[in-house]
Design a protein around this nucleic acid. Structure first.
Lengths: 306, 306
DNA sequence: CGTATAACGAAAATATCTTTCAATATGTGA
DNA sequence: TCACATATTGAAAGATATTTTCGTTATACG
C-alpha cells in the first residue's frame, strides 16, 4: 500500500497560516486515533508544539514520528517542518489577538447573558473557520455550474433541509429554477429527471446521510453536475460529488447540538454560493430581486404604530 | 580558537518575538559585513526568509551556512532553526496587522474569495451586534414562559418561516410541543386555540408583516404569552407582544438582500431562546436530545468510503 | 613588511525530518 | 465466530537540514 496522503487534498491549497485552527477542527473527525491526539495537541497549544521537534511531539502525544508527519500532511503541509512554522505563526497571531475569555462550554447554570455571549462567540468562530476552510476553487466551480444550470435541485433532510430551502428560496428570487427536497422519496423521483446541464446539491453535515446521498447518486449517474456541502470531506457523499464544499465542524456539547453550528456553517456556504451565482447572472438577478421586493411591499402594514 | 557567540549576550534574554526588527537595527552596526547582509535580508523580508533553509538564506545573501548561524546567534537565538520560527511568527504578526480591508460592500466583480471574506465578516458583525443589542431581561422572560408553556406556536413567513421552523424543530427535540406556521390562514386558525399558559412567537424582520401580526394578535387576545422577534422594536408587531426580542438590522446592498443578515440575527436569537429553555427543562431535555440522536443513528451509512 | 587577530566558508559531524516496511489492529463478509 | 482484506501504527533506515570544526583568506596594527 502506498501512502499518498497528499491526494486527499482535493485542490492544491496553499497551507493555511492562521486558518490552521479551523483546519484542525474541520479535519479532526476524519482522522485516525493517534492522528487526532497529535491534532489535538497542536490545536491545544500551538506555541508549545512549535517549540518541539518531530520526536518531541511524537513523545508528547505518545505516538511515532511517522504519525506526526502524516498528520502534518493531512493538515495540508508538505511536512512537519512547515507545520511547525505555521504553528509559530499561529502562536504569534494568537498572542497579539484578543482575550479568549468565553471559550468555555455552555453550562446548565449559566446565566442567560452568558449564554448569549457564548453562543454569539461560538457562531462567530464557526463563521471564521468556515470561511478559512472553504475551497474557493471548488466554490467557483459550483457557482459556475449553478449559474448556467437548466434547473437546480437541493437535497437536505432534518436540520439541513432548512438550509436547502433557504438556498432554493434565494435562487428562485433571482429567477433561477431551483427546488429543495426534504422528502427522500420525492428527491429521488426528481433526481431521475436530471441530466447534463442540471445541478444537484446535497447538504449533509455528517456526509453519510443515506436519504441525501441516494438522490445525489442518481443525479450524478444521470450526468448532472453534483455538489456536496458537508462537514466530512471524506464521507460517502463525496463519492458522487463533482464539487465538495466543506463546512466546519465545531465542538458540540450536551446542550449545544452539532446541528447548531453546522447550520451556521452551512448557511454561510450557501450564501456564498448564492452571491456568486447572483454576480454571474447579474443582468437578470438584479431586476428579479427588485421585483420580488416590490411584490412583497403590500404585505406590510404602513407601520402606523406608536 | 573557540567561537562562543552566546557569550556576547550579556543577560540571557529570551529571543524576541516581534521585537526582532528592532534588534536587527540595533545590532547591525556591530555586525561584520556578511552578517549585515544576512541581517538585512531577514529584516527586509521576514516571511520570505522564513521559507528558506540555512543553505537557501546563505546562497541568497551570498554567504555561508556558518555565517547565517552566527548571525542567528547574535540576534539572540540558539540557532537558525529558532530564528526561522521567530521569523514565521513575525510574518504572521505583520500579516494580521493589515486585515480590516473587507469593510466594503460586495461588488458585482468581486472575486469569489473576496465574497467569502466579506460575507463571513458581515455575518460575524451581525452576530456581535445582535448579542450586544439583545435585552436579556426580555429574553429571560420569554424563556421562562416557553419553558413552562403547554404549547408553543411560531409564526413566520418568507425567509423568517425557516427560522420559525428551526426553532420549532429544536423545541420538539427536547420534548416540548411546538409548531411553526408559515401559512397565514392556518396560523390564525391555530392561534384561536391558544389560551393562557401557551406561548406564541412571531418572527418578522420588518415588524410589519401583516400575515404574522394577525395570528399574534389573536393569540394575544386569547391570553397567550406573546413574543415578537423583530428588527423594528417600534413596529406594529410589538403592539401585541408581551416580550420583544430585537434583532439587528445590518445594511443591505443590491446583491446582499436584508434577508441574509436578518436571518443570521434571528437565528442567534432563536438559538439563545432554545438554549435557555433547554437549561430550564434540563431534566427532560437532556435525555430527549440523546434519544433523538439515537433514533437517527441508523440513517447514516457506516462511513465505508475511502 | 610581518605578524596577530578577526572573518569567513568548505566540509565533517550532528540533529532533525522523511520514508519504508513489517507488525498490529480493525473491520467485513461468509 | 472465523478468515480475509484493509487500515493504522511505530521502528528503523534513509534523506535533509543544521551546527560545528577547522583551515584559509582578509584586515589591522606595530
Amino acid at each position: 500500500m502506498k501512502e499518498i496522503f497528499n491526494a486527499s487534498q482535493p485542490t492544491g491549497l496553499p497551507p493555511a497560516p492562521a486558518a490552521l485552527a479551523a483546519k484542525v477542527r474541520t479535519l479532526t473527525p476524519s482522522l485516525t486515533r493517534s492522528m487526532q491526539r497529535v491534532a489535538e495537541a497542536v490545536a491545544d497549544n500551538p506555541a508549545g508544539c512549535a517549540a518541539l521537534t518531530v520526536t518531541g511531539l511524537a513523545e508528547l502525544t505518545g505516538t511515532s514520528e511517522a504519525t506526526v508527519v502524516r498528520t502534518a500532511r493531512l493538515l495540508g503541509y508538505p511536512g512537519y517542518r512547515d507545520l511547525r512554522l505555521a504553528l509559530a505563526g499561529l502562536a504569534a497571531h494568537q498572542q497579539s489577538g484578543r482575550a479568549p475569555s468565553v471559550t468555555a462550554d455552555i453550562a446548565v447554570d449559566d446565566p442567560i447573558s452568558e449564554v448569549v455571549a457564548k453562543l454569539a462567540y461560538d457562531e462567530q468562530q464557526t463563521l471564521a473557520d468556515t470561511a478559512a476552510g472553504l475551497d474557493t476553487v471548488q466554490l467557483a466551480a459550483a457557482v459556475a455550474a449553478a449559474a448556467t444550470a437548466r434547473r437546480i435541485d437541493v437535497y437536505g433532510v432534518g436540520a439541513s433541509s432548512l438550509v436547502g430551502m433557504d438556498l432554493a428560496q434565494k435562487l428562485l428570487r433571482i429567477g433561477l429554477i431551483a427546488h429543495a427536497h426534504a422528502d427522500p422519496h420525492l428527491a429521488v423521483t426528481n433526481a431521475v429527471q436530471l441530466r447534463s446541464g442540471d445541478v444537484a446539491i446535497a447538504i449533509t453535515h455528517s456526509g453519510s446521510t443515506g436519504d441525501v446521498i441516494e438522490p445525489l447518486r442518481v443525479a450524478f449517474e444521470r450526468g448532472a453536475t453534483t455538489v456536496a456541502i458537508t462537514g466530512r470531506p471524506d464521507g460517502p457523499v463525496t463519492q458522487y460529488a463533482d464539487h465538495v464544499l466543506t463546512t466546519s465542524t465545531a465542538r458540540e456539547s450536551e446542550l449545544r447540538p452539532a446541528a447548531m453550528s453546522s447550520r451556521t456553517s452551512q448557511l454561510l456556504v450557501v450564501d456564498c454560493l448564492f452571491i456568486g451565482v447572483a454576480q454571474r447572472t447579474y443582468e437578470t438577478a438584479a431586476p428579479a430581486l427588485a421585483a420580488s421586493y416590490e411584490a412583497l411591499a403590500h404585505r406590510h402594514t404602513p407601520r402606523n404604530a406608536r
